[in-house]
Amino acid sequence: MMKKILIVDDDRGILLGLKTLLGNHWEILAAPDAFFGIKIARSQELDLLIVDLFMPGIDGVGMIHEIRSQGVKTPIILISASQRLAAHARGLGIQDYLPKPFEIEQLESLIEKLLGKPAA
């Protein structure tokens, strides 16, 4: 069975791009903001979360705080346009971070590090 990844990013181009590129190997769920992200993370068994840092409303940090406080222990990769903030967010209980812009191979290698190689 395919492992399930939730991607939370307010940029439609990034959300659609990641959904298509990663969709061959993993089951991808997409949320356009943290509010929907929290809702999905609470209601479904997920294998990985990919969360953007800057989002309108609740930002990535707020979302991570919220789901961690509710006992969700799913690994998280934080992506951000701010290299510094992404690195400092390490203390939030995330597993890894990736500054934007990134190459898809970089993200795939982080995912494989956390979830293992996808089934062919």
């Binding site: 940029d11 990034i14 590129l21 346009a81 934007k100 812009p101 990134f102 898809i104």
Partner: peptide, 20 residues
Amino acid sequence: SHELRTPLTALRLQVQNMKR
């Protein structure tokens, strides 16, 4: 620079998407 990074990420992903 920060504001440019987001659309650039989307652009890179779509180019990689088409190449694949």
